[in-house]
Design a protein around this nucleic acid. Structure first.
Lengths: 128, 128, 128, 128
DNA sequence: GTGGTCTAGACCACA
DNA sequence: GTGGTCTAGACCACG
């Protein structure tokens, strides 16, 4: 479980953290019940502000992926196949997926090729 | 070709426009050579500022999807399968796709189901 | 001597014409004394405005590459090795060359490679 | 690192800034990691608008030469030989170089002389 | 009449 | 305090 950040990247730092943790949950590096580093611990390790880590954790909480306890810290709350996604979650995801796939298609990637890439990326998660 | 914006949405207005136009190009609503509304016209229709539309068009130009004409206004420059995507473009796309697919998987969607949704979304584009 | 224009290209049409004529003079397609098409002839051929052709010719005149006669039309006035460039002309050219070469270097092209490309491009002119 | 602008020059202000920064990166005045002035600061120093500086920086970012940081301001991202140029970048550069070299040749500069000037300009970059 | 550029001033997200 | 976004209004280059 190695987290890194690019302070001057295109995405805000808190989202970089959120994304990496989502991927870690997907590929099994993090399992339901696993504890995440404390905010101040992670902030110190990465040389960033504690509030930034906090914001990342809060986003994950509002997505239902982690639970934030006063004493337990941040704990992974949901893993693959743990609980089916809600309708709102699903509609929002589909909207983003449509945009992403449209971009690929509009920019010249052939649909079978796009689908194959999606399959390969998903395989990264299931195989581990 | 109906464009709408949510001024208070999560994404900036110019990106909402960019996204909708990308989808329109992908699904065939807009074909290479088709003219987009003029910046002033679209701005007036949507009740937003000219510069905001301008920024959306400028981004699309830098992505190679539209050409900004001197007299004609904005014109769709690239359609599906018009030209293969560059390596950088592709790597960036794959990074975003990984995050999006990881999110789906981590939130409980089964890989076959995810893949099926991707296939269905792509079919929206190829069928029209 | 085939001239073409992209109405929606990055460069203004009059400059596209100017550039192509400059290259034609350099590579020998056009020689000193050769007549260029009349403004209305060229405008009709390319489907553009007469004033646009006029502007291109005027720029070339101010650069000393063509003479504009009331009765003779536009005539190539100067060719390779015809007359050494003036100091102002030269300083301005060098400024633009510095920017172009800096861009190549800053973007990762090795100086020997850049120089070789320049040599090859110049050879296109001398060989014909 | 001294930047100047000519408000009434032929090139737009933002491009004058862009060009000067490209040259500065090429000749080593600016090295990867170096910070550029903040948009507001530079705008105030030059007596121009913040948005104009912003546009210059944004172009440089889209060219991959700088990263725009959240806290640090603009930072030089790519230096000479840091990363090879892409194919599109290269083709576009060659087109512009052809025009520039043709102009020199057509205006009476001998090819060896032109090449020597290019070599000298490149030497300005490598020597520092 | 089109997009391109510049100015001016405001509010927000991020850290 | 930084860049990012949006608004408003003006002038210019191009065709």
């Amino acid at each position: 479980m190695l987290l890194t950040v690019e302070p001057d990247g295109d995405d805000p730092i808190y989202q970089q953290l959120r994304d990496q943790i989502v991927v870690a949950v997907a590929d099994g590096t993090l399992k339901p019940g696993d504890a995440l580093p404390t905010t101040r611990q992670l902030a110190a390790d990465l040389g960033i502000n504690m509030h930034t880590v906090n914001k990342a954790y809060d986003r994950l909480r509002s997505e239902g992926l982690v639970r934030l306890g006063r004493r337990t810290g941040a704990v992974v709350a949901r893993g693959p196949a743990d609980e089916p996604a809600g309708a709102d979650e699903l509609a929002d995801w589909e909207r983003r997926a449509r945009t992403l796939l449209a971009e690929a298609f509009a920019k010249g990637m052939a649909p079978p090729e796009v689908l194959e890439r999606c399959r390969a990326l998903l395989a990264e998660f299931t195989s581990r």
